[in-house]
Amino acid sequence: MNLTRKIGRAIAAGLLTLPLLAYGALAAEDIFDLSPDQPGRVRAEKDPAAIAAIPHDFKFVSPGRFTVAISPGGPPLATYATDAKTVVGADPDYALAVADSLGFDLELVPVAWADWPLGLVSGKYDAVISNVGVTEERKEKFDFSTYRQGLHGFFVKADSDVKEIREPKDAAGLSITVGASTNQERILLKWRDENVKAGLEPIQLQYHDDEAARLVALRAGRVDVIVQPHAQLAYIAARDKNIKRVGTLSAGWPERSDVAIATRKGSGLADALTLATNHLMKSGAYARLLERWQLAEEALPQSQTNPPGLPKS
């Protein structure tokens, strides 16, 4: 797609304004396509191994269709397109590629985040692809096929003096905004304790109720850093150009925490979906899909069925 068409799509999606164009603030490669037609979607070939691994007694919700629940929480993972009804984003694209690998059509079912567990158990859909992290508690009820790392991102104002945050000492003395009772808070409290034990300045946590409030606090200079799921902030940084990433953090720190397709426990479908994902990785479709939504850093080297998850609290 040429630059003119990309700019046109960006304006239609509300991601670009004429004043920004005048200053060249948004590069073409940073534009996310939120149009309903999605001409740049990555498609995949059938994977005979994955198809053969589908249990003979598994009954799909609709014959010939892979029915997937997804929660449109926001770009770039899943959101409503400019027509306000089509769900687009990295997770819908991934669901489509998996459906292609299985030789099925895709049926997306938008659901509220809180509703997916009951809907999956009751058989309303075949799988959930909606940024679901693997945890030991969830593994008691569901099977998982991993497809992306769970990353949090450290972002600062574009003109900030903070250059890099990779470990606790890098955040010593900084003021960081987080949500209360979140995984980010859990990790940063451990970082703060480590810094205090090492004789460094403690991290100062400030709590804000939602993303909008956290971003206002950052842009107003009331905090130095915002930390929350990386994908959300990567989208905002590409769109607004006034914040930048200075580091990432595994959601399972100090271990890695992965995002996975969730399926009913014991249904037998997980192994087929793991094979399908590994097929996408080998073919290059997986890398192209993540790159399309600027999520290349969240790539996994391979998919696994039911790997270790976050421990029970």
Rank of each mutant, 00 (worst) to 15 (best):
A231G: 01
P92L: 04
L280F: 02
Y94W: 13
I243P: 10
K190D: 09
P308E: 13
L310I: 15
D83T: 05
W116Q: 07
V109Y: 07
W113M: 05
P307E: 04
L21G: 12
D143V: 09
T274K: 10
G252V: 12
Q304M: 11
K6M: 15
P75N: 02
W191V: 12
R264H: 04
V196D: 11
I236M: 10
G247Q: 11
P110L: 12
I11L: 14
H208V: 06
N242K: 11
D240S: 11
A260V: 15
I165W: 00
D271N: 11
H279I: 04
D224Y: 01
E298L: 07
P110C: 06
G123D: 08
E140S: 13
Q302H: 09
T263V: 10
I203G: 05
A69W: 01
L16H: 02
F154Q: 04
A262P: 09
L205W: 06
L273H: 04
V162F: 14
P311Q: 08
G266M: 06
L189E: 13
P117R: 08
D258I: 02
P72E: 11
D170L: 03
L290W: 09
G74D: 00
A237W: 07
P301F: 08
M281P: 01
I165R: 01
S250Y: 14
L188K: 04
T182K: 02
K197G: 13
D105P: 02
A22I: 10
L18N: 06
S62K: 15
S283E: 07
P307M: 09
M281R: 15
M1R: 05
E298W: 00
D83I: 05
A81C: 09
P229E: 13
F144C: 09
I7D: 04
S257L: 14
L300W: 13
D224E: 02
A180W: 11
L20Q: 15
P311N: 08
L108D: 06
A251R: 01
N131A: 13
K163V: 10
K265M: 05
I261S: 03
A238C: 07
K124C: 09
P76Y: 03
A78T: 00
R9F: 14
K282I: 02
D93V: 00
N242D: 15
R138C: 03
D105I: 06
E291V: 00
Q204H: 15
A212F: 15
G64L: 09
A287M: 07
V246C: 08
G119I: 05
T274V: 14
V246K: 08
R239G: 09
